[in-house]
Amino acid sequence: MTEPLVVVRSLVKSFGPVRAVDGLDLTVFPGEILGLLGPNGAGKTTTIRVLVTLVAPDAGQVTVAGHDVSRSPRDVRRAIGYVRQEISVDPYLSARENLWVYGRLFHIPGPTLKSRIEELLTLVELSDRANERVRQFSGGMKKRLDIACGLMHRPRLLILDEPTLGVDVQTRHRIWDYVRLLWEREGITVLLATNYLDEADRLSSRVVIVDRGKVVASGTPEALKAEVGGDVISVRLASESSGEGLLERLRAMPQVGHAFIAGGQIHIHASHSEKLIPEIMRAAADLRVAIEELAYRKPSLDEVFLQHTGRQLREG
């Protein structure tokens, strides 16, 4: 197996009483797009800030490209292109000037820098606005410029912290396209933090699900979803209180793999939903509980998260 690019072992980081990261393990291999998926406050950004040497860990070992974050932070920073969760371009500079200043901080010599800037402006589709002051850019444009900055020095590892947070659908798809393009063309390794299921699902070659500072599951999106087993049926009852009785009946059925109540709904993982659905209807009728809504679908990462934490990634 190839040498991993990032190794995080038993990382702990607290802010006062808050344990933002609580014994987290993470390995990123060269050439993969690793999705770090977790709800708000799971500790994704904190983990990343430790990786890019902005925050010192309380405990645990962290190495990037073979360098320890505490002992050789400069070597670590040289290996990483970091795009913050919040927009962090200089609003008083033009797009081109932003890239120039950033590139010089990596000592990229003039002529190389010039062509690199044009290349990146083309990639993020900002060439025609390159000399405008960034303050008048839209949020999506600023984000794309930030991503271009992160790619400036051709890093081995690109870290994107929620790159599509707060951008419109169109920009989101563009950003996904850039990441895929870079991955295919340059073989860049990507660590992508997100709390969007579809983003993790579609973009990552491997997903690590984190919750409350810990890893709760990891694997390829397909494998994780397969682990859920079969299809997912969710049942919303007219009155929530009567759910327990129905749940008990369902659990007794042989086709039901796993059934539980979360978010006011009964969730059922089953292998053959087409046969199970009529039986659920019958059981509900027997118990005289009214079903308000019954839905069935292939499992998504939401189910994976639900299965491991008993909560939904997103409420509602």
Binding site: V52, T53, L54, R74, R77, R78, I80, Y82, R84, E86, I87, S88, V89, D90, P91, Y102, L105, F106, C149
Partner: peptide, 11 residues
């Protein structure tokens, strides 16, 4: 506005 953090994350 995060620019400082961005600079601090460079070598």
């Amino acid at each position: 506005n995060g620019f400082l953090e961005k600079v601090l994350a460079t070598p």
